[in-house]
Structures are given as structure tokens and as C-alpha cells.
Nucleic acid binder design. Sequence first.
DNA 1: TTGTAGGCGTTATCAG
DNA 2: CTGATAACGCCTACAA
Lengths: 342, 342
Amino acid sequence: MARPTVNDVARAAGVSLATVDRVLNARAGVREKTVERVNAAIEQIGYVRDVTAANLARQRLYQMVFVLPDAPALFVDTLRDAIAEATSSSLADRTEVRIITFPNGNPHALVKSLRALNADDTDGVAIFAPETPHVRDAIARLKSDGVPIVALVSDLPNTERDHFVGIDNIAAGRTAGFLMGKFLGKTGGSVMVLVSSMQARDNVERRLGFDQVMAESFRQIEVLPSIETHDDEGATERLVTEMLRNRPDIAGIYSVGHGSRALVDVLRDHERRESMTLIAHELTKITREALRDNLMDAVVSQDVGHIVRSALRVLRAKSDGRDIVHSQERIRIEIVVRENLI
Amino acid sequence: MARPTVNDVARAAGVSLATVDRVLNARAGVREKTVERVNAAIEQIGYVRDVTAANLARQRLYQMVFVLPDAPALFVDTLRDAIAEATSSSLADRTEVRIITFPNGNPHALVKSLRALNADDTDGVAIFAPETPHVRDAIARLKSDGVPIVALVSDLPNTERDHFVGIDNIAAGRTAGFLMGKFLGKTGGSVMVLVSSMQARDNVERRLGFDQVMAESFRQIEVLPSIETHDDEGATERLVTEMLRNRPDIAGIYSVGHGSRALVDVLRDHERRESMTLIAHELTKITREALRDNLMDAVVSQDVGHIVRSALRVLRAKSDGRDIVHSQERIRIEIVVRENLI
DNA sequence: TTGTAGGCGTTATCAG
DNA sequence: CTGATAACGCCTACAA
């Protein structure tokens, strides 16, 4: 009852190994009728190709590229760490990965990096970048060159990316809103909202989801307009400090972006620390410590390890034209509090 | 710069392929000095064996067994579903799995099932069962027979299991406690606690963790003694209904066990439904619906898909004497609320 | 358009 | 004790 091999297919179809192989890999030079005969045989005996054997034979080495910003936000660092870890154990699945970094907020440099890539030495690209027209073009070029592409963390829905590896950020914002509402309780108060940038799609979506839930279920809470930090820590500290001084009604702070260091720094020694409910995104060194110290109440996060492994799996599958197991590739919106911090 | 192969090792050590293979697989019949020479060569040129090629050559088929109770709790069903799904895509990694079911609460039958297993036709066993002396013995026998074993969901710490696939249940209980405390807020009230059985290790640990957090951080909340349901839904409905009638101070309910159907049934049309904070464990059809309907506030859960895949990966690794990537095998304590329900 | 033969990295079966 | 040599399932020149 061993599973059928190419030999079985060849015998069943009355052709040779090579012909079966040509059909399997959709190579030219086979008569239409023969193709049909082979496919019928494959169907009939239930053949399914052994990918590992195929990769062994063709000495396949998947060359994958991660494209990341050099944003000062710690989140990108955790992503880098996750990639490094995945890399170390990646010989096992014939995968080599390199990381390309582009200056944050410089789409031009990003595009230049993308231009340097081509199908010869790259089997897949995972991109974490904002969607701009130039980026769209660069992705279109790569696609037309036959390179599989996945968007990482922040989706690029209007491009030809094959897949998005990350969470639904509207739902993530809704989750943060739900927790904020529940934690603040009946008493209410106002909530200050910090975003990195209104250009970043994930930030905007989270804010949107947050507002939805607040409007639907927690009317007693007033949500203030977004404060844009542009990842400038000094400015953020000043803005937050001032805001807290002017608005004694603020009971909660929602940090939407990828970095929360400035916020945590201000709050750590603040007199209103105890009475403030703090919710942020992404588990990093900073948010971890803040949770542990009872400074932060919850973090809405995504497992970077899972994201990286998923991106690689999906790219390998796309590169081979295989299907992906969707359930395994779904990235969860994780809620982390003091007690389930790993 | 391709990675070195056995041929390279053979050449470097001045021996033949066969000898290298004997050393690699620790087979007898090689002079001590030769072994050392080969190992030195391996070390020197940084050889690492290609597992896929090895498996191809030995036509390896991993035969794995899951041992599960036929408990009426829906959680076990979700676990079964996850196994079924993993099975369907498991040809890819040469893994065949079968499931053995034993009558819930019948360690004798369980032991009988375990006795039927042996190293000839099983390469690994994943067990979800309570730890009893007989079970300990059965596991010891399997181990001495050389069969890798992992404990699933509920640990078997006093056995010779190679690994535990599941969450830290004390931390899971603490997480539930933290959420209960936060959700109830300053007002306080009492909390009713339902456990399946005080025999089940995971139940006991969760209750312990819950109590710890309540005592540490939420003194205004009174936690009532555990009510044992023994997975009897009729009895549970009666107990809960009565309790709610007698204690108007009850503001929250913590369902520790794997099943929450009876509880949800009682609450769904209860007059105090709105004012009650409900926290349970495990994402199932029942708890899913309850979250969606705003009946339940949070579920502390574990990803059954991840658990199953992890168990299989670990068993394969143990079976080959390979190391495991711990970060990938860590099962998270997930918090699921209405908004991050997938 | 099709087939034959050899190779990918490893294991296993023979002799020597 | 050690070494050729033929598999494993698939791919790929090169021939036919």
C-alpha cells in the first residue's frame, strides 16, 4: 500500500518516466493526447508527487528575501530576530534568506532595492512596507518576472501580492477597543490615542476598528483625536506629558503604532500611573517590561515567529505552485496580559 | 559552497560511504579509531545530515498514535478535528496517524490500549489522559521499548514522557483570574467556579492559578468553593440554577473544565445574563457562539491545530534523535474575546 | 515527440 | 571491520 510513484504512473499510462515528468512539470514537447493519458493515469491511481524527493533531485535551494524598513520601532527588531531564528534552522528545508533594509519613509530607496531583485536569484519576497504607487509598480514588475510575493504585517491589497501574512488590523483595533471598554468599566472617561502615522495602513485600520467598538458598545467613553508621533520619541514624550496635564479626564491611553517606548517612559514615573489604563500593540522588550511592571494592562499582538515561518512556507509553496494549508497560515490576534506573558 | 555531503566526509576521513553511514547511525562494527576519524571529519567540515534524503532512502513512514478519552467535552472533538486536518496533509511529511479512544475515566481500558502498542508499528505516541499509577507503568513500558511519548494538553510530569505539548495551566488559571478581576472592576462581588473534576490535573492547576491572582490583586472579590460537574450536564444545569437563585451576590462565573455547554444553556435565557461576567476555557462551538452572542466575556484557550502539529513534529524529531526548536513548540495561552474570534 | 541513463544525498545489502 | 553497489522518488541531459 505504498503511495504510487512516477513509475506507477508511467506504467499505467504506457509511457516513460521522462514523459510523466514533462507532464507533471507542464513542460512543452508532449502531444496533447499523451498529456491527457498521463493525467488520467495520475488521477486514476491517485498519484501525489513527493516534494522532498523532487527537491533533492533538482538540488533546490529556495532563496527568499525579506524587505524591512529600518524604523526605530522595536517591533521591526523583533521581526528581525524572528527571521534570524528561522534562518538558523532553515537548512533543513533548503531555504536561504537574506534581509534587505530600506530607510523608513523613503519609498524611493525601497523601490531601488526591489529593482535589484530578479527571478534568477530570488524565489520569493516578503515585504513589510507602505503601499505607494512606486512600490505597486515595483511589485508588478517582480510578479511579471514570476517572483512570488507576500505582504508582511501590513497588507498591500492593491498590488499583485500573492498572499498577506499578518492580522486583520481592523479586528485588532476592535480587540483593543473591547478591552479598553471592559477595563475602564461603567465609569468611563476619555481615551488618548497615539498613532505612528496616518500614512501607515495598519495604523489607520486599527484606529478605525477601535472607534467602531467604542461607538457600538462603550458610549460612556470619549475617544480623543489621534496624535501622530511619526516615531519621534522626544516629541511624543512632550505631547503625552502635556496632554495628561491638560486633561484630567483621561483614563486610558491606546498606543496604535509599533513603538511605545516614549509613552512608557512618561508613564513609568507619572503620578497618574496607577489610575491609567494602557493598551498597546506588539510585544517587544518595552511592552513586555511594561506588562510585567503592571504599567500596561494589555498588548494586542501577533506572533512574529509564526509570521516569519508562515511567510517562508507560503513563498515556498507559491514558488512550487503548491497549495497552502490556510488554517496553518492564519495569524492570530493575540491578547497578552501580565499573566500569559511567555 | 553547497553544503557538505557524506561523500565529502568519507573523502576527508579517508573511508568509504558505508563506514560514514555506520558512524552516523551509530551502528556497530566500526573500529573505535575509525569512528573518531569520521567524527573529526564531520566536525571539521561542518557536515549536517539531510533528513529528507535520509527519509527517502529508508522509505521512512512515521506511524504516530494519538490516545484520547471519549469525554463528552467538546474540546476533545476540536482536538479530533485538528488531528484529522493534520492527517490529511501529512503524506507530505511521511506521517501516518491513528487515533485510539478510551472510555473517559477508565484507566484500565486506557492501559489495555497502551499495551497493544509496540515499537514495531508505532514511532511515537501522544497521550491525553490523567496520570494514574497504571498509566505510569504503561508509559514506562513503552519507553523501555524505545517509543517516544509526549503528553498532550494535560502533563504527566511523573512519567518518562519525553515532552509536554500544552500550556502551563497554572498560568492559564492566573490569566482567567486576571481577566475576571479586571472585568469585574472595583465593584467586586463573588465568583462561582465550576470544575470538571478535581482529579484532572489541568483543572486543579487552573483553579490554583486563579486563586493566586485573586488573592494577590483582587481582594474585593470573593471566590466560592469549586463545584464539581463530572461532565454531567443535567446535574450542572441544576447546580448552577440553584446557585444563582441562592446567591444574588454572584457577579462572575469561571468555568475551569473542558466543557461549558450546560453553563451556557442556563445563562442564555437567564434574567441576570447581562450583569454576569463569564470566563471559560477552550474555544469550542459552544464557547464560540457564547462569545459571539455577548454571553461570554472571554475564553482562555490553546490552539489545537498548533498542539497537534507540534506533537507530530516533536515525535518525529525524537524518533530520529533530532533536536527540537523550542520556540516553535511553545503553546501559547490565548485569550479570545468577541473581537479577535477568528 | 518520446525514451534511456545517470545523478541528487542517504541508506542497505552484499561481498571481501 | 570495511567497501562497492544498488536502491529511494524524482529530475535532466542526451539520444533516438
